[in-house]
Structure formats: C-alpha cells, structure tokens
C-alpha cells in the first residue's frame, strides 16, 4: 500500500509543505541570519557578526523586560494552576449547576487579548481611581493588572483540563485509600495529585509558554507604560523592530534569544514534570 500512496506526494503533502516552507522554514532561517546583520528590510542585509547581540545585552530595556517577564511567568503559572485546580476539585464533587459554572468560567478564554486588555483597563482604572492612581502609575500596577487579567482568561481553560484529569482517576483507587483510613489531605496528596500529574504537565506547559509569550494583553492593557516599566519581552522585541530606527538587527537578535529561552523552558519543563507522572 505504501508504494501506491508514495507517488501521490504532490497532492497530499506538497501544498502543506510549500506553505510551511514559506510561512515557517524560510522566515525562521532568515531570522537567524538577519540577527547577525545590519538591515532595514530583508534585501539590504549586511553581515556584522555578533554586534546585534552585544547591543541587545547593553540595552537596559531588554533586561528590564526579561526580568519583568520571568517574574510575571512565575506568578501567573502558580496562581492560574492553583486556582484552576482548586475549582476543578470542587466542581467534580457533583454539586448542582456544575455544567453552568464550567461554561461561565471557560468563556473569557474565547475573547482575544486585545479586547480583554481594554475590558480590564476600564474596570481596573475605575477601581484605582478611588485611590487616585491608574494602571500606568507604576510598573507594579501593570504587573498585577496583567496577572488578574490572565487569571481571568486562563483559569477556565486549565480548569477544564484538570476536571478531565480528575474524572479519569479510577473510583476504586479513592475507595481503597478511604478504606485504608486516608484523610482528605492524604487522599489529595498521595492519590489525586499524583494521578493528575499528566494534566499538571500540560497545564503548566500551556500557562508557562502563554505567559512568557504574552503580547496582545500587554499591548492593550498598559502598552508597557510608564516608561517601559510594564513591558514584556514580546512587546519589547516588537518596539525594537518597529519604533527604533537602526535597531532592526538588535530586534532580530532579541527574537533569537527569546526563541532560545522559550525552547529551553519548554524542554526542561517537559522533562521535569514527565518524570513525576505515575506509570500506568
């Protein structure tokens, strides 16, 4: 059978491969090459070696954005996963209205980052006004504003995945633990959490990469104000490219570093949490 399918390559695989090459492979390779060049557009690139990387690490706004993003990622991964898991635990107890609550909590996830940013800008600025502040009063306000926004958006999504994980735990396992006299705390620590480790892997991976790569919400909520103090990496890269003339090369170098960090995080995270999963 393989032989008869094989000659159909142009029909089955070629369209995707052409688009994939144009939409990913070529831009990716060009991106790496351009990070070593001076350029204003892709046709006038001149090789300059590591100059762009040197400029990147000499740019305080980049280091500031890197720190902000790292801290933001840690806080949001913890808050989103803990709250989502807690809600999932309570919503699997079979209480009335479970489906309705699930529907409501998931809903914000469908709304895009730009729209979310403005929704929360009006709400949070309305509250802060009573204290004579706004979201752009200092970087810390932007930070916590973004944390609240992202929690609202992503808790529902992660909750859905945790609910599926919890429902997959065999009932006998919990029964057996109860008969052996396990308390609720022990049940949670020694049965439920180890059994939902695959869901934890997925959810922490998703929240980690989503938080680290956050762009739209950042742009719409504070746009990095005041003075770039609430600017995250993705927005910093964007601004380097499109608002600072002569910095395109540095922007691309930042993007390569950004990619490397995301790749390392993704692989480490995957390795660490997969180890903790229960063998079945």
């Amino acid at each position: 059978m393989e032989k008869s399918i094989k000659k159909y390559f142009p029909i089955f695989a070629l369209p995707t491969m052409v688009a994939f090459t144009l939409g990913f492979v070529v831009p990716f390779l060009m991106g790496i090459y351009l990070s070593f060049c001076d350029f204003t557009t892709i046709t006038d690139a001149k090789f300059v070696g590591f100059k762009n990387y040197a400029r990147t690490f000499g740019d305080p706004s980049f280091l500031q954005a890197l720190g902000f993003t790292a801290l933001f990622t840690v806080v949001s991964v913890v808050t989103i996963n803990v709250i989502a898991f807690a809600i999932a635990m309570l919503l699997t107890k079979g209480i009335k209205g479970t489906n309705l609550f699930r529907t409501v909590f998931f809903m914000p996830n469908l709304i895009g980052g730009i729209v979310l940013g403005y929704i929360w800008q009006i709400l949070l600025n309305g509250i802060l006004e009573h204290f004579g502040r706004t979201l752009t009063y200092s970087g810390a306000y932007g930070f916590w504003g973004l944390i609240i926004l992202l929690n609202w958006q992503q808790i529902g999504y992660m909750m859905i995945i945790y609910i599926a994980g919890i429902q997959n735990i065999p009932g006998e396992l919990i029964e057996a633990a109860k008969i052996d006299g396990a308390t609720n705390g022990q049940l949670l620590r020694h049965v439920t959490i180890p059994m939902v480790m695959p869901s934890v892997t997925i959810c922490s991976f998703l929240t980690l990469t989503n938080s680290f790569k956050l762009f739209d919400q950042n742009l719409a909520l504070t746009a990095g104000e005041p003075a770039k103090s609430s600017q995250m990496l993705a927005l910093n890269i964007y601004e380097t490219f499109y608002t600072r003339t002569g910095w395109e090369g540095a922007g691309q170098a930042k993007a390569v570093i950004f990619f490397l960090i995301v790749a390392v995080i993704a692989m480490t995270q995957n390795y660490l949490t997969r180890r903790k999963e229960v063998q079945q």
Partner: peptide, 24 residues
C-alpha cells in the same frame, strides 16, 4: 524530517519570524 520540523515549529514564538515573514 517533515514530522520533526512540524514538532519543532510549535515551540517557535511568532516574534522570531515576524519580520522576515511579513516582508516575504
């Protein structure tokens, strides 16, 4: 090779390709 490339592309952030992709 195609399969591996597809897996790989999933971890590449858009900022990495945005400039060259939009110009292309």
């Amino acid at each position: 090779a195609i399969y591996t490339l597809c897996l790989f592309s999933m971890i590449v952030p858009f900022q990495m390709v945005m400039f060259s992709l939009s110009k292309l």
